[in-house]
Nucleic acid binder design. Structure first.
Lengths: 198, 198
DNA sequence: CTGATATTTGAGTGGTCGCTCAAGAATGAA
DNA sequence: TTCATTCTTGAGCGACCACTCAAATATCAG
């Protein structure tokens, strides 16, 4: 056989995700990536094929990370509505955390790619639909365990919740957001908990 | 004297605004602008100075347009809460309209410019703060005319409303948003109207 | 008309873009 | 050790980037 790659693919992808998440697709140059990944162009192209393909892989691991967090919370045994409320509440700390960006990378990607046909855009839309479906599933489970009335519309509640989260996180991108975001997150959390039947 | 410019500055700015609004700053090239504005590079630079300066002017007229719409609605004599509710309701038609983009140009700009120091980012933040202040003023006026209780927190309500609008419009950018956006807009409108005291 | 002043034109600037590929370096099977 | 195979390196590719400027063109005062 022959030599193995000297870099850790997951680690490199995480770095690429953080850089793309922060700067967006167009504003991130190959030079930026070479520096952040500590890889020469040849290695990047041998490993990922193109800037676009690398971005797509980064977007996938971003979505997978978020999705796994939600799944873990659902699996923790807490009630579905509590999980959703806790998710909202956790957004209150957005402005205190040192993240690549406070807004959702999927949303940033969709806003940056208006052409409906583009592969990047399509992927971001698919992943965002998955994320929405997770919220919808949470509300559906809340119905199933009796936290919500039988006639609650889980899809509508789930997508409304997603829109609220998207709005809060986009809003939090402002530099003076720290004053108000915690209050808005608490509002949203209480709004979810107030749906509880009992 | 000498010859006058053959193009209409406001018309050119409106075209630039629409192009930037749709494609974003980085994805819009001077070639794109030359074509959309029907102007050669020399004329563009003589009239506006730089791509960045042109973008900033376009952003200003975008914000002015939105702001004027709100002010006109407030001045129409309708109750403040009705104006806000109607604004929310009008978002239900977002997906049926032929706009450059459904998301807010200010939000797109802030998400695309992570560097807190950049002039473009700063301008977008300032204009977005103005827009938020308009919503806050609406809720404050609602208090003044007795539509809201004395202890209502106009700033919190106004900024929450702005976050909701931001979320709805970003959400509406998705290609399959048409199914759900009208319902979400109606939800938001009713939520505003439900605040009415009487 | 003439001449002074302004705008329009578009080829051309240096620089950066995403990307390639031949050569060198490291590995493991025989 | 030898050698086939794979990974790494980085100079360099053509294309496009934002932008410039000298020449051509249009306007108006006199």
């Amino acid at each position: 056989m022959a030599r193995k790659a000297t870099f850790d693919r997951d680690d490199v992808l995480a770095r690429a995700r953080d850089l793309f998440w922060r700067k967006g697709y167009h504003a991130t140059s190959l030079k930026d990536l070479e520096h952040a990944l500590a890889l020469k162009p040849g290695s990047i192209y041998a490993a990922f094929g193109s800037k676009e393909a690398l971005f797509c892989e980064a977007l996938r691991i971003y979505a997978k990370g978020s999705g796994d967090d939600m799944d873990k919370a659902y699996a923790s045994g807490a009630s579905p509505l509590s999980v959703l409320a806790q998710h909202a509440r956790s957004l209150g700390a957005l402005c205190d955390q040192d993240r690549p960006a406070r807004a959702c990378m999927l949303v940033k990607t969709i806003l940056e790619h208006p052409e409906e046909g583009s592969p990047v855009r399509q992927l971001a839309e698919d992943l965002m639909a998955e994320a929405g479906a997770r919220f919808v599933a949470g509300f559906a489970r809340a119905k199933a365990v009796g936290e919500l009335p039988e006639d609650a519309d889980a899809e509508r509640l789930g997508l409304k919740f997603q829109a609220d989260v998207v709005g809060l996180r986009a809003f939090a991108q402002r530099s003076d957001a720290g004053r108000i975001v915690p209050a808005l997150a608490e509002d949203l959390a209480q709004h979810v908990e107030a749906m509880r039947r009992t």
